[in-house]
Amino acid sequence: MPTLVHEFDWPDRVVVGTVGRPGERTFYLQARTGKRMTSVALEKQQSAVLAASVAQLLDTLASQEEGLSIPAEAPPELVDDAPLDQPVEEDFRIGEIHLSWDPRTLQVLIEAFPVDEDPSDPDDPVHPADLDEVGEPSEMLRVRMPVGTARAFVERTMAVVEAGRPFCPRCGEPIDPDGHDCALPDDAESGAA
């Protein structure tokens, strides 16, 4: 069966956002062109690494590519603080993400592949690097975005990641909205052994 490719060459919108309250959030990478939309779930850590990797790619291009104008900050007209487009329907959960630069179109390219499982071993996820053994992925997301949009994507994604639960100043663990059982005993604060 051929791979179903959710492709967005010049998306109207590409963002990372969440559904749920802090501590119970599900992260989504969402791309939309017109009425066509794809939402793929990813982990908070994947979101942070993706944003940092896109930022690093943009910074590298800015320092190495002569004649290429890469904004240091998101252009104000490209800042997108709106919630995810509704309804959020998960197309797949991301297992692996590839990031590259498309010099033909001068765009950042993100390719996201689902976590697939090998039917012979349900505990062994199959990643795109292993495709020679098991075939093509069932689907993938491919998004190309111009450098200004990519910079806005980075800033929004980092803000979404950082908007989670606050951390306890005593033990460093996240504080749930319903309360927090500090991991440190009361006498640890006073220095008692």
Rank of each mutant, 00 (worst) to 15 (best):
D116Y: 00
I94F: 13
T26N: 12
A129D: 13
D123F: 10
S190W: 15
A41N: 06
D12Q: 13
E139N: 08
W101R: 10
V143H: 09
R36I: 02
D178G: 07
L99E: 03
A72H: 09
W101P: 10
A72N: 06
D102N: 14
E90L: 04
V14T: 12
V134H: 11
S47K: 09
G172P: 04
D80V: 00
A193W: 15
M145P: 07
T105S: 14
G148A: 12
T149G: 11
Q56L: 11
D132I: 08
A192G: 10
D130L: 13
K35F: 11
Q86E: 13
G23H: 08
R25D: 08
P125N: 07
V15Y: 12
Q45R: 11
Q86T: 06
Q86R: 14
G179Y: 06
A152R: 10
Q46I: 02
L141M: 15
T60F: 03
G172I: 04
F167R: 15
I70G: 05
L109K: 15
A183N: 06
H180I: 08
S100C: 09
S39T: 03
M145W: 08
A55F: 07
L68K: 04
G164R: 15
L84A: 01
V126M: 01
L57Q: 11
A82Q: 06
R165I: 00
P83F: 11
P177C: 13
R104A: 10
P137H: 06
T26S: 14
V79F: 11
V79W: 13
G20S: 07
V134N: 08
E7S: 04
R156W: 13
F113S: 02
W101L: 03
V134E: 05
P83T: 02
F167K: 14
L42A: 07
I94E: 11
D91T: 01
L131M: 13
R36T: 05
L99G: 06
A193I: 03
D59F: 06
L42S: 07
Q107D: 07
S47D: 04
D9C: 01
H98I: 06
T3I: 02
V19R: 09
D80T: 01
R151T: 12
D59R: 13
D123C: 12
A52P: 01
E111L: 14
R165L: 09
G67P: 15
P177A: 12
H127C: 10
V5H: 05
W101C: 06
S120K: 02
D102M: 03
V143E: 07
